[in-house]
Design a protein around this nucleic acid. Structure first.
Length: 231
DNA sequence: GCGACAG
DNA sequence: ATCTTGTCGC
């Protein structure tokens, strides 16, 4: 259990088995408590990947304004392996989340939710571990099939399992930009997750929470605060 | 066996 | 993800 957060022992079979057990705890539901605070989360790297940086940005859900932010750095514990991303990023993400001054009502993570080979993408894993509503906002596809989608912002098509099961939504948020792959991580449904993401999109491809977290976690353009009054 | 493959 | 300049288009 904790072995994977300590020192990566190369046992991918064990990691996959753990994912299958945790996927059992993912809850997909329509009801969602009133939300005032959303946290956007993302991870970046420094020193050629040896250092992992995780950023969390606390947002006012209604105004899209950042209220607080946190940035943590720690040694990278394992390499990137498709399907096992959460084990690589979760430790840092949990630290960044706990460093926020308040507990958010909803999390939006850069990566997949249940649109994953074993239904436990990083957003689903983080949701189960924290027991908070969580949405996966990925910039590209890991699994699933989908039909071509329109060019207008708001256009969307379902992301399906090979057996036709609904995994998420392929959503166009901006013209001439590749679509986003939205999937529930925990405590919400595909439709709720999609609507909530759309509600946080302004003029950019990414919804504000993950857009700001991405900006903060990224090594490029230095480590700038995303808080307005901080400039 | 061959390709696909979040970040 | 990250290494990197200019460049095409709104």
């Amino acid at each position: 259990m904790d072995w994977i957060f300590e020192e990566w022992n190369g046992n991918t079979a064990h990691a996959r088995a753990l994912q299958q057990r945790l996927a059992t705890q993912v809850r997909i539901q329509d009801e969602l408590p009133p939300l005032r605070l959303i946290a956007g989360l993302d991870v970046g790297f420094e020193d050629q990947g040896r250092i992992t940086r995780a950023a969390a940005v606390l947002m006012d859900a209604a105004t899209h304004q950042p209220l607080a932010e946190s940035l943590v750095r720690m040694p990278t514990i394992m390499p990137y392996i498709p399907g096992l991303l959460s084990f690589r990023e979760l430790p840092a993400l949990l630290q960044a989340l706990s460093a926020l001054p308040q507990i958010p009502d909803l999390l939006m993570v850069d990566g997949q939710g249940i649109a994953h080979p074993r239904r436990l993408g990083v957003a689903a894993h983080l949701g189960v571990v924290t027991d908070l509503p969580c949405i996966g906002v990925a910039k590209s596809r890991l699994v699933g099939i989908y039909d071509p989608l329109g060019d207008e912002p708001g256009d969307q098509v379902p992301l399906l399992d090979s057996s036709g099961e609904r995994l998420g939504t392929v959503l166009r948020t901006k013209r001439r930009c590749n679509p986003l792959f939205i999937s529930p991580g925990h405590k919400l449904s595909v439709d709720t997750a999609t609507a909530l993401v759309q509600g946080q999109v302004t003029r950019y491809r990414l919804p504000e929470p993950t857009r700001l977290a991405d900006r903060l976690a990224s090594q490029r353009n230095g480590c700038q605060s995303v808080l307005q009054h901080a400039i």
